[in-house]
């Protein structure tokens, strides 16, 4: 375990530094960086600008600037929003809850449905059900999430008038039922692609397992077929699925951004788009870095969970 842990942590740290370099590079491409703000903002002379650059340290070599920027990030100083001067991390923090709620609900839905579909598909491989599930998953992965959201709104809000078409709650209400009613559509829309991903991973994991020698051993012992599938095969097939939690995080975050836009869901994705349209680069870059870090930590966490759950990896 400790060997695996150390190796995995080391990899993640290296990756974190590289991620920050990519982020820093993009930040420096930004035409709306601090200097152009000053340059365009008022009638400053070149000397004034140079003086400000000097004060802000912007005239120093890039590696120095990067090191300082990275160090400040580590300490939680991610800059301030151009819009209201709020600290970037605070701005992100106040939108994170809504995004997490949406992502967790969708993931939960997707895991339950996807695992069931994938398992059944693998058990009845090449049956009509399996064929439909496979083709369906491929189509689900081809549907633009925002369009699926529009269609869902059209069907469930406009046409059937069952569910609200956006926002996290009705102003002045906010009861648990109201929250739930608002959550259903966006969670369903975000879950579509996720379900397809989980069902395909689960199907192939299950197919790997049912061809393993130990499944043959279980049959040779006289274990009933249902028990072989549910106890022996399912457990072994489900374990590596923990790592899928990490693998699909980038897709999940991207999907959340689009879903939040369609459903005016007040999360990080909407904040990101709003910040882009305001050219609020500190927040844009903050969210970019934040989401990459989230992906990094998420996959690290998923790998660690997998290691804890799988007796084979425990020794490392």
């Amino acid at each position: 375990m400790s060997g695996f842990l150390a190796r995995r942590l080391g990899q993640s740290l290296v990756l974190l530094v590289l991620v920050s370099m990519v982020g820093f590079a993009i930040l420096h491409l930004a035409p709306g960086g601090p200097m152009s703000q000053f340059a365009s903002g008022s009638d400053m002379t070149q000397e004034d600008l140079d003086r400000i650059a000097e004060q802000l340290g912007l005239n120093r070599p890039l590696p120095v600037q990067y090191a300082e920027w990275f160090w400040r990030m580590l300490q939680g100083d991610w800059g301030r929003s151009y819009r209201d001067g709020e600290a970037v991390l605070n701005v992100i923090g106040s939108h994170l809850g809504a995004t997490l709620q949406l992502m967790l609900t969708a993931t939960l839905l997707a895991i339950i449905i996807g695992v069931v579909i994938g398992t059944l598909g693998a058990i009845r491989r090449h049956s009509i059900f399996d064929t439909l599930a496979t083709v369906g998953a491929m189509i689900a992965l081809s549907i633009p999430t925002f369009w699926f959201g529009l269609v869902a709104i059209y069907v469930f809000s406009v046409w059937l008038d069952w569910l609200p078409s956006g926002n996290r709650f009705t102003p002045g209400d906010g009861s648990p039922l109201d929250l739930l009613r608002h959550l259903i559509l966006p969670a369903m829309v975000l879950a579509l692609v996720e379900t397809a991903i989980w069902s395909r991973f689960m199907r192939s994991s299950m197919l790997d397992v049912v061809n393993q020698d130990y499944i043959r051993t279980a049959r040779a012992k006289g274990v009933p077929e249902a028990r072989i599938l549910l106890r022996h095969a399912f457990r072994n097939a489900a374990l590596p699925m923990i790592t899928v939690l990490g693998l699909q995080l980038p897709t999940l975050l991207g999907g959340a951004l689009v879903t939040e836009t369609v459903f005016t869901w007040p999360g990080m994705g909407r904040l990101f788009l709003d910040s882009i349209s305001y050219r609020d680069y500190p927040v844009v870059m903050g969210i970019l870095m934040f989401s990459a870090t989230l992906v990094l930590l998420g996959s690290l966490l998923a790998d660690l969970l997998h290691a804890v759950a799988d007796p084979r990896i425990r020794l490392g």
């Binding site: 393993q212 020698d213 130990y214 043959r216 051993t217 279980a218 040779a220 022996h232 457990r235 072994n236 374990l239 799988d310 007796p311 084979r312």
Partner: peptide
Amino acid sequence: VFQEPMTSLNPTT
């Protein structure tokens, strides 16, 4: 009894 002792037992039980 099978040939492959390394893979014939369920690894998670």
